[in-house]
Design a protein around this nucleic acid. Structure first.
Lengths: 339, 339
DNA sequence: GGCCTGTAGTAAAACGTTTTAGCATGTTTC
DNA sequence: GAAACATGCTAAAACGTTTTACTACAGGCC
């Protein structure tokens, strides 16, 4: 059960392992191996179903054809769907994916990076946590190909693929205003990271632009690591505190879900008594009664872009980093309509 | 940026690489390395933050400390949640996870196994597809540690961790009967694999046991690879064909979701006009109006068991295979109540 | 015949470990 | 005072590749 090695092929073909390696790596021409020998080796390799040992190859070349994917939470629908796209796309280039979830915990993220590093992954796709900038810079100064996703560090010149979160929130809020809601709040995560900051900024900008008075009391920022129970408690407390509130924008998918739950347990009628827009699409949003308006991310496109950008870094080291910002789509449903 | 190797430590400590290896692998005692030298090496290794090169180690030992996880669809909530548990548990043993989705396509599954094989994973966690039995046996005859999950092959003596699907379906159906529903159908996937077969069997057994007449027209088996649109069309066609139908059991989570959608587009009132039970829990089921009764799988326990069984195979090769069958929990909600 | 050029290939080192076999040296033992 | 044993360590091979630097030979040219 040892597996076929280059030596076995060499022996059968009556040539040296070197020759086999050259042929199998497509360097037959370049290395002046004759057609005859070339063909023979190809044939034997095919017959024996030879697959190069990736460990040995990796040891020698330093390339493992593996990429590390660090997400916030693989159990979250958004990240899981994205992981699948990434896996499929990476496969097209012959890469496998090692993954891990940070739970938005910087220590866990560092641990993951550590493991991926000594597993010698060739490139990194990272959903960074708050204080991961130093580690990112470390990877960069080691010229490791990497792409940030979902969020990025403005002060670091790295490749990234993100949503236009500002536009997402701006559109959502503008839509609520257009629907006639007057006092609109946002429930978000207490985070200074770009994705959350942009969503908040987009929300505020939309209010300002439409001359809707804005003040701090319209913003609720919750800790990321609360459990569902606590999310609900906090959200209910907040919603009942704001006077004359008639609409709310939930800035992440899980907040949206918690929000729906909270509002229902308050007995308010979604849409009529309180307008609601969520983030990321979800079966629940589509099928809820009433259905939930949301800012939808183009997951397939995000995944493709991520892998494309990463492959560019892998294949053209030193080429300038690329930033991709994709447009969200506002999926209008019943939760943002009074009728 | 080369990374610290055992040689660097050896040089600094003024000993041979061999000694360093012995010490760092905890064989100092056994190999009679003095306390002094041992300590010194440990210290230097810590100072240099030495991490063994897993490729080199793997090449030499044949162990990569990596396991392959093959699921049906990582974007499916059930598999994603499970993947997360598996990743966390495996990490406790120092293993990383390479994953892939089969889409229930045997060719894709074979491809994944192929890749995992020549990546030299130490063990496999496999959600098998229909005709994967030959490959499983091949892995077995190569003494590869493996655990099947979600489903298994009755004619193969392998380890597996599955739900008691029979009981899940039986309980769901019995519950519907107890709630007073008289004509109950099942919508399932056209699959002869154990998980689907057991669910169907459990359904039929419950009907028989309660003297409810059963016939083939109460069973709808859909092709796995339909798109959402087609699922809906087929389900609607089926539900409207069965005379006097008053309850339906959807045998997978995505069928349940499609079922809800279909029933609603038919304008039927869930619970009152038609009882409904789904499989696997989901935010949608919890928050739908009315909320959806479902057979819930103990995901954390499944994941832990999978990794535990696999670790047993890894650490005690040749030990008898283990079969774990876990009990589902029927989560009773509004969709199965007429009131 | 000596020199160059081109052709077709190979030997050996290297990647970073682990592991087998063994080498000094000192200490008992009879 | 030699054999036996214990102690503390190391040299070198091996895992399966890739890659650099070569060799061996043939033919052409002066």
């Amino acid at each position: 059960m040892k597996g076929i090695s280059i030596k076995d092929i060499a022996k059968q073909a009556g040539v040296s392992p070197t020759t086999v390696s050259f042929v199998l790596n497509g360097k037959a021409k370049e290395k002046r191996i004759s057609e005859q020998v070339s063909k023979k080796i190809q044939k034997i390799a095919a017959r024996l179903k030879y697959k190069p040992n990736q460990l040995a190859r990796g040891l020698r070349t330093g390339k493992t054809k593996t990429i590390g994917l660090i997400v916030e939470d693989i159990a979250n629908n958004f990240f899981a769907s994205l992981a699948k796209v990434v896996e499929d796309e990476a496969d097209k280039y012959g890469y496998k994916v090692l993954y891990g979830s940070t739970e938005d915990n910087t220590e866990k993220a560092k641990g993951l990076l550590e493991v991926l590093k000594y597993r010698q992954v060739d490139g990194y796709i990272i959903t960074p946590t708050k204080n991961l900038d130093k580690e990112i810079e470390l990877l960069q100064s080691a010229s490791k190909p990497l792409v940030l996703m979902d969020r990025y560090f403005p002060h670091i010149n790295s490749s990234y693929v993100v949503l236009n979160n500002y536009k997402g929130a701006y559109d959502a809020t503008t839509h609520l205003i257009a629907q006639g809601y007057k006092k609109i709040a946002i429930v978000t995560i207490a985070s200074e990271q770009t994705q959350m900051k942009d969503r908040l900024d987009g929300f505020v900008a939309a209010l300002k632009e439409h001359k809707i008075p804005f003040n701090k009391s319209l913003v609720k920022r919750l800790a990321f690591d609360l459990d569902r129970e606590s999310f609900n408690t906090e959200i209910k407390k907040f919603l009942t505190t704001v006077k004359d509130l008639d609409a709310v924008f939930f800035a992440t998918n899980y907040l949206g879900i918690a929000g729906i739950e909270s509002i229902r347990s308050l007995g308010w009628e979604i849409g009529k008594e309180i307008g609601l827009v969520g983030f990321d699409d979800h079966d629940l949003f589509r099928l809820h009664s009433p259905s939930i308006t949301c800012v939808s991310q183009p997951i397939a496109s995000i995944g493709k872009n991520i892998v494309e950008v990463l492959m560019n870094e892998l294949n053209h080291p030193g080429s300038p980093s690329r930033q991709v910002v994709l447009a969200p789509e506002l999926v209008v449903r019943a939760s943002s309509s009074r009728t």
